[in-house]
Nucleic acid binder design. Sequence first.
DNA 1: CTTAACCTTGACGTACGCGTTAACTTACAG
DNA 2: CTGTAAGTTAACGCGTACGTCAAGGTTAAG
Lengths: 162, 162
Amino acid sequence: MATRRTPTLEPESQEQAYLQIGEVAERTGVTQRTLRFYEERGLLKPPSRLDGGFRLYSEDDVRRVEQIKRLQSLLGFTLAEIKDMVEADEVKMQIRATYRKDAAVSERRAKLLKAKEVTQGQVAVIKQKLTALQEMQGHLEEKLAQYEGWIEHLAEQEPAPQ
Amino acid sequence: MATRRTPTLEPESQEQAYLQIGEVAERTGVTQRTLRFYEERGLLKPPSRLDGGFRLYSEDDVRRVEQIKRLQSLLGFTLAEIKDMVEADEVKMQIRATYRKDAAVSERRAKLLKAKEVTQGQVAVIKQKLTALQEMQGHLEEKLAQYEGWIEHLAEQEPAPQ
DNA sequence: CTTAACCTTGACGTACGCGTTAACTTACAG
DNA sequence: CTGTAAGTTAACGCGTACGTCAAGGTTAAG
């Protein structure tokens, strides 16, 4: 028997805990196919590879997958929309990385402004959904109160239903 | 020229303002194909028809279409999920209609309890999405604050960016 | 009765988001 | 070195949510 489940490249010194695609799939609840598909569509950056070609994902990648799932299932965004959002996140990471470097001030400023703009757009979208959801919640809870009233009313009319 | 745009069966006494499919499509922003498709899938009850076979929609139907659109675009529900929700609404309507009738008390009670249950389920789903959205909003606004801080910092460092 | 606008039911096409083989390679325990 | 679990690419398939003709019937105005 040849059981292998340890994440290959298991360093004694904890440089980075790299995960193969199966582990990532298990932890995130998506299939391997989905992970490769997201990579195809540009939602996940091409991960590093083992010499043989096996994909090696970082913890950041895992977090991104979870973020994608949230955006998709909870908020109903399409993969195209999600791609825009994660690309915005990429820009942010780049800004953080190059912030102290010798880039022109105007360039850094422009990037920051763009990141801010993108984020504001995201916030706007979310706020729209929030208000719509709250409105719906209000309506539903009104109805719930009605039902409860009616049920009580029935209970009074006929106290012993069987 | 034969221009027709008035909703056929235009009664002087306002019994009901029935609309043909084109009007409904225009008012709701969905296509006629979509309306027929929703009917196929059970999201819209088969509307009444003109003698020639033309569909005649009520204002209630229009409201339902708008509800469907909200559930779909804002909350990302699938048509199957939406069907469950509108079926729950149907149950509610039926309850209202038969509430004063001579149905057995236990039956009415059961229907009310079911309606309450369904509605509670809907509220639960919405609450989940609400909290997820609020969390995301929090994260994004944190980031926004950071960006703004950085931008200010840049402005101080080099006051005249030209 | 003619005509234009509007409608009807198929039926096929399409974009998205993966699922599912198939055929093959790689990694590691024994 | 070998067997097996895990991974790889390529390609076709499928359900959802409609779009898009096609071919024809209906309505109302002139």
